[in-house]
Simulated scan of single mutants.
Amino acid sequence: MAVTATGRRIRKRKLKAEINVVPYIDVMLVLLIIFMVTAPLLNLGTDIKLPDSHAKSLGTPKDPIVVSAYADGRYALKLPDADNVTMTPAEITRNLQGIYKQNHDATVLVNGDATASYQAITNAIDAIKDAGFDRVSLISRPVEAKAK
């Protein structure tokens, strides 16, 4: 050991190769609590007015199946090469289940009346989803078609 001029011994300290992570854990827990408290406040709904779309259509699918929801609460199913037939959502689900067993990739469209309630259109989508179809598209009219 080394000795100084006054006779004291100099101790060499060994370096520690570890990191004290306790302060980092404390900061992380505080941030976690802050985010947990503020996250529900960020999901509040706001009133918005959606813009009209001038986007071009992606194209008409070949032989689509169309489920219509009317303003008076009626529903109808139109199969390719057939007429529009009024049905209940349960009957639509049963008919679409048979089609789904034969063709998993069939195109299903929802044609909702502009004055139909949101619930009526949601019920039509639910009937399609209950039949097994994962992809459902909505039929809309472009802005320039409304003006004509």
Results as ranks from 00 to 15, higher is better:
R74A: 07
I92C: 02
D52W: 10
A124G: 08
D105F: 11
S57D: 13
T122K: 09
L44T: 13
Q102P: 04
L109H: 05
V136E: 00
H54V: 14
R135H: 14
L58C: 11
R94F: 12
V85Q: 08
R141C: 11
N103I: 02
A131Y: 03
Y70F: 15
T115D: 15
N123Y: 05
Y75Q: 04
E91Q: 15
D81R: 06
G59M: 03
Y100D: 07
T107L: 08
R94M: 11
E91W: 03
A114Q: 12
S53T: 10
V66Y: 00
K129V: 06
H104W: 10
A131R: 02
V110L: 14
P80R: 02
K49M: 10
V110M: 07
T122P: 10
N95W: 00
H54G: 15
K56H: 13
T115R: 14
L79R: 10
R135C: 09
D72Q: 06
P61G: 08
G73D: 06
A124Y: 01
T60Y: 10
E91R: 12
H54W: 12
V108I: 13
P80Y: 04
I139A: 05
P142M: 07
H54R: 12
M87G: 03
K78W: 02
D72E: 11
Q119I: 08
I99Q: 08
H104V: 10
P51F: 03
Q119D: 12
K49G: 06
A114P: 08
D81W: 06
V66H: 00
V136C: 03
D126W: 05
P64E: 07
T93G: 06
D63M: 09
N111T: 03
N111Y: 09
A120K: 04
L96E: 00
M87Q: 09
T115Q: 14
L50W: 07
A120N: 06
I121C: 07
T122Y: 08
I65E: 00
D130K: 11
L138M: 14
I139L: 10
A116L: 06
K129L: 07
R135A: 14
I128V: 10
G73P: 03
G73H: 00
T93F: 02
R74G: 09
G98E: 05
S140T: 15
I128F: 01
R135I: 14
I121W: 00
A76G: 11
L77Q: 00
A127D: 06
T93H: 03
Q119L: 09
E91L: 07
A90Q: 11
H54K: 12
K62V: 08
V136T: 06
L109F: 04
N103W: 04
P89G: 04
A131C: 06
I92N: 01
F133I: 02
R135V: 13
D72M: 01
A71I: 09
A106L: 04
D130P: 01
T86L: 08
N84A: 11
Q97F: 07
L50F: 09
M87L: 15
Q119E: 10
N84G: 03
N84F: 01
A90N: 10
S68Q: 09
I48H: 15
I92R: 00
A124F: 01
I92Q: 01
I121M: 08
N111S: 12
L109M: 06
A55D: 11
I92F: 01
H104C: 07
E91A: 14
I125G: 06
M87T: 00
G45H: 09
G73T: 01
G73K: 00
N123M: 09
